[in-house]
Design a protein around this nucleic acid. Sequence first.
DNA 1: ATGAAAGCGCTAACAA
DNA 2: TTGTTAGCGCTTTCAT
Lengths: 339, 339
Amino acid sequence: MIDDKMVTIKQVAQRANVSTATVSRVINDNYPVSDEAKEKVQKAIKELGYRPNGIARSLKCNKTYMVGMVVPDISNNYFMDIARGLESVISPLGYSLIFCSTDENTEKELKLLNALNEKRVDFVLLASSTQNSDKLEKFIKQGMNIIMIDTSIDDLEIDLVVEDNYNATYKIISYVIGEGHRKIGIVNGIMEVSTAKERYKGFLKALENNNIEVEDRYVVNGNYNRKKAYEEVKRMLQKNINDLPTVLFAANNDMAEGTMLAIKELNLNIPEDISLISFGDISLAQLIEPRLTIISQNAELMGQKAGELMINRMEGNEEDYHKVIIPSEIIIRQSVKSI
Amino acid sequence: MIDDKMVTIKQVAQRANVSTATVSRVINDNYPVSDEAKEKVQKAIKELGYRPNGIARSLKCNKTYMVGMVVPDISNNYFMDIARGLESVISPLGYSLIFCSTDENTEKELKLLNALNEKRVDFVLLASSTQNSDKLEKFIKQGMNIIMIDTSIDDLEIDLVVEDNYNATYKIISYVIGEGHRKIGIVNGIMEVSTAKERYKGFLKALENNNIEVEDRYVVNGNYNRKKAYEEVKRMLQKNINDLPTVLFAANNDMAEGTMLAIKELNLNIPEDISLISFGDISLAQLIEPRLTIISQNAELMGQKAGELMINRMEGNEEDYHKVIIPSEIIIRQSVKSI
DNA sequence: ATGAAAGCGCTAACAA
DNA sequence: TTGTTAGCGCTTTCAT
């Protein structure tokens, strides 16, 4: 490393013949300073190439202007969209976003939260892939500010931004039943996680209300993972090749992609041979045939809402904890056959 | 906010009846401490729920364990892949990644670099969408550590990780010429940026070497942007509908997507009516028909290389500045017709 | 309007 | 092996 000379407020003060306090006042423009002093200071700053040290400032003010975001899978567009939404509200206010992926790994999730805690980020947006309320409570007790998004954990004093998983799933399953489907399969997510549970419950309820039996042989676990879903669906389809389900519901977008891949590989056509619906849209949906009938998720809005909650809390406006439920709608396209 | 009581090293020291220095030694495990003291301290830490304050540590040690990454477009998978590669090498060493998008906006790029500078991140990985060497030099003079990736700026004392844009483009264009194509169009990127320039040069050279004239009416500017590419290609195709180019080269993946969309919308088929090749793969390529013949980019490797350069520099091992050129290969699939 | 000085939480040089 | 203490760069109270 070259000359890593750090220019400090002290040097600026010296050069401008004022005190460090005055320099600080000029920088932050928060206390009266004479025009003359102001000018001298600004000149010195420019000449020295001075840049305020945010770390020192953070230490003093107990505020880092950093927000952490922890998600299970960085490559899933859904979480990227949430991040974008979050960014769009916090960035204009001067906050930076630290984006971390746990790869669905509980241990890594803990490690990342620890790191963010030590970095003293002002807030964390957590899309957890675990149901570990104890650990989370410890972080909260240590003064960490956390908002959960997507998944939730019960009985936690915490803000929540979630989707209406149960009802949305209930609706879309009811829709395919209305289209005449009776042999309905599901590709489940990680069943320890709230979203997967709720979606499965909505699925079951819709079947029940229409007096349709759940067929276990059409139920697979895709772990919210494209590859796993691909493998499991492929195996399931092969096993039932002589009595296929007429429709498959993928509990998230990644698994829908894996499911499409599996279907395609078995030389089956959507929706002629088998229909497909998904919770959440796949990426680049416009280019993929057929266009999928889906529950649309509005991830960006979720991120925005979470951002607003953060800001409100940091400004000390909020008292009670909120559970924000983001509505989702069904988008009917071409992947379901009427039978 | 609730009780935001911060537990400090001092309180731990008090409770354990030792000095703050001893506590620090236990935490960092970098100086000899008696087993007895160690135990007392660890007990106190647990009881109080103490977490080291990384900010204070950073101030003292002049090291933040944070790396910034600035890219033009957060939603382009190419940059996400680079980020993943970077993360995979720095994360195990305890570094966090701050990921920022400029939306191809020069002003925002400057603002983000400023913010990262004030946050005193240890290193910045910059995929610039500008050619502003002056500003960049100022940052470097202020002691900021920067590695450029993807795009480059000449005459800067800086590490570089780039692709072999010129040669890769030359090769793929030569390939389609070998397949009999003579009417060759190009969808250019932002022509102020090094990558776009180099790719265009490679394109021109391949034509020249085969005595093919560039046809201006087949050259469009897609600005490295999906939507723009879609619009411009559509317009160009409509204008030349009676004498279409036989093949189109998109200078990046996003524009390839836009180009596909445009072609599709005009009810043309790839490769029967028009062939398509791309610098970089589109996302979810497996699900999109036909599979595109492309220059494959190895973005993750680029990120890794950049990470390694950073680490080396931070450990003070490196002296000279390196220009790492990542090789790219042509992947032939089904989007080019032989004529 | 300005300056002196305390102190944010931590590390490390020095002394014991 | 342990404690004392200076100081990282900044903000802010208090005095002037």
